[in-house]
Computed example of a mutant assay.
Amino acid sequence: MLTDPVDNSPHAVEWAAPRLLGAAMVAGGIGLIAAAAASGTDAAGLVLLMVAAVLLLGMGATSLLVRPKLALMGAPDDADGIRVRGLRGAVDYPRAAISRIRVIDLARFGRRVPHLEFDVRDGAGDDRLIMLGRWDLGTDPVEVANALRASGLRVEERLGKR
C-alpha cells in the first residue's frame, strides 16, 4: 500500500527514500530478469543476473512500500515523539521512550557519511538502536536533525571532519 508523497524538505514532518528511485530499481530488476531470460545457456550469467534482479526488486519494493521511513508525531513545532516504519510496520516512540538522538559520521567507501542514530526503548522495555542514512530519509540526515531540533527534540552531534 503506497501512502501520500513524502515531503523531504527541511521543514518536513516525515521522510522517506525518493519514490522515483524505488521505481527505477524495480524497473531495473525487471530489466535484469529479461536479460537473464535472454542469456541462453550461460548458467553462471543466469545465476548472477537473477541474484542481482532479486536484490534490485527487493530494494526497490521496500523503498516504495515502507513509506515514510521516519515521521514526527504531533505538531511540527512540538513533537510528541517519532514514528519509524519498517517491514513489520510502524512503531511509535513517544518522547519519553527516546533516550538519545544524534548525528554521527560513519566511514563508507572511503568517506565520512552522516547518519541519524536513535536510542529508544520499545513497548516491551527493550533498548533498540535505529540508524537511518541518506537513502532511508531521502535527504541529508543533518537537515532531518535540524527539523527534529526545531520540533523540540534534543539532538546531539558527533560529526568528524568532512
Rank of each mutant, 00 (worst) to 15 (best):
M50A: 13
M25I: 00
E14G: 07
V142T: 12
R158L: 05
G81R: 08
A71S: 15
L148W: 04
D140M: 05
A75T: 05
P141V: 12
A34H: 02
I33A: 10
A124V: 04
V26Q: 10
R128Y: 00
M25Y: 03
V13R: 06
V144T: 09
G74R: 06
D136E: 14
H115D: 11
A96N: 12
A35I: 00
I82L: 14
A107V: 12
A35M: 14
S63D: 11
M73S: 12
V144L: 10
V155G: 05
D77S: 14
W15Y: 15
K161I: 06
R19A: 13
R112C: 01
K69R: 15
R108M: 14
G22Q: 09
P18H: 07
A16D: 13
M131C: 04
A43T: 13
L129V: 10
A43G: 01
G29V: 07
G125V: 03
L56V: 01
T41F: 10
F118E: 02
G125S: 07
P114C: 06
E143D: 14
H115P: 00
R88D: 08
R108A: 14
G125H: 10
G40N: 10
A52I: 09
A37Q: 13
V66R: 02
R85Q: 13
M25L: 15
I130F: 08
D105Q: 03
L57C: 11
A150G: 13
A53K: 12
I104S: 05
E157M: 09
V47C: 07
G60L: 02
L56A: 12
R19H: 08
R112W: 04
V13N: 03
S99K: 08
R67Q: 11
L32N: 00
W15M: 10
D4G: 12
I98G: 02
A23Y: 13
L116E: 03
S99E: 15
I30W: 07
G86A: 12
G58A: 14
V26H: 00
A124P: 05
N8W: 08
A44K: 07
L148V: 08
V51Q: 06
P68G: 08
D80A: 15
R88S: 14
A16R: 02
M73H: 03
G81E: 11
W15C: 04
M59E: 01
L148G: 03
I104Y: 00
G138T: 04
R95M: 07
R83H: 03
R100Y: 03
L106I: 11
A147T: 12
L132V: 13
